[in-house]
């Protein structure tokens, strides 16, 4: 059973490569307590503060909130990219992260070569990657473009390829940023089909989005983040207000 459990989770970004002194003068005065100094006198941004939640199998969770609320940071933390500075995190289940569609893609390689590369990123062999490419090609509807370098792809084709690659592997936990909404209408119908199939297999979806129709249509639960804290957690109607 896939689960995500977090208690007292906190992430802080030290501001290393800036002029801390001028930045401090500029921002500290006007901040709402998100910037502070740590014990070494560095300026840090508290990106996530004291998050406690449990997400169980079968839940489709939307992370909502204004820009900079910490939605993507939370996705990256669950994915295991950022190590928390405080709290506990337990993620059980294989994770597929669709945080940035371009990550790990090589513009000069063809679509097929990129699928193989992605398979290698996932710890698979090249042969498994080639098998995967067939599945991805069918779903993404790239046709002959599969054997063209992806630098010639349109934004929509890139998104389709990335979505197909990430979902072809049926991760138990799918973490997704809202970029995939760039797909065209026809693709969105297929994408939704595929996503709902994944979720009915009792997997977890966590999606960061601003789009309330997506939340209501796809999600069973919404968590509102503001200033790195959870300010609301419940059904989409409870969190967003009745439609």
């Amino acid at each position: 059973m896939a689960t995500i459990e977090a208690s007292g989770l906190a992430i802080e970004f030290p501001l290393y490569h800036h002029n801390a002194r001028s930045l401090k003068q500029r921002i500290l005065s006007s901040s709402r307590l998100r910037l502070r100094k740590d014990e070494d006198n560095r300026i840090v941004v508290a990106a996530l503060r004291d998050l406690t939640f449990t997400i169980g199998s079968g839940e489709r969770v939307a992370l909502v909130g204004p820009n900079g609320a910490g939605k993507t940071t939370l996705l990256r933390t669950v994915a295991g990219i950022y190590e928390p500075v405080a709290g506990r995190l337990r993620v059980s289940g294989e994770i597929g992260s669709l945080i940035d569609p371009a990550a790990g893609m090589d513009n000069l390689l063809t679509g097929r070569e990129n699928v193989v590369l992605r398979a290698l990123y996932r710890g698979m062999t090249e042969a498994e990657g080639h098998a995967l490419a067939e599945d991805v090609a069918g779903f993404a509807g790239l046709g002959d473009f599969l054997d063209m370098p992806i630098r010639g792809y349109s934004a929509g084709m890139n998104v389709r390829l990335a979505f197909a690659m990430a979902t072809a592997l049926t991760p138990e936990i799918l973490l997704m940023d809202e970029w995939f909404l760039a797909g065209d209408a026809e693709f969105m119908v297929k994408a939704e089909e595929r996503l709902s199939r994944m979720v009915t297999d009792a997997e977890i979806l966590v999606i960061a989005t601003h789009d309330t129709t997506i939340v209501r249509k796809w999600c069973t639960r919404a968590i509102r983040l503001e200033g790195g804290r959870i300010t609301a957690d419940g059904t989409p109607d409870e969190v967003l207000g009745a439609a």
């Binding site: 506990r88 995190l89 337990r90 294989e94």
Partner: peptide, 14 residues
């Protein structure tokens, strides 16, 4: 193409 068994990632800042 699922990869059994489910891996568990656990992190405790303490």
């Amino acid at each position: 193409m699922r990869h059994p068994p489910s891996p568990v990632h656990e992190f405790d800042a303490a």
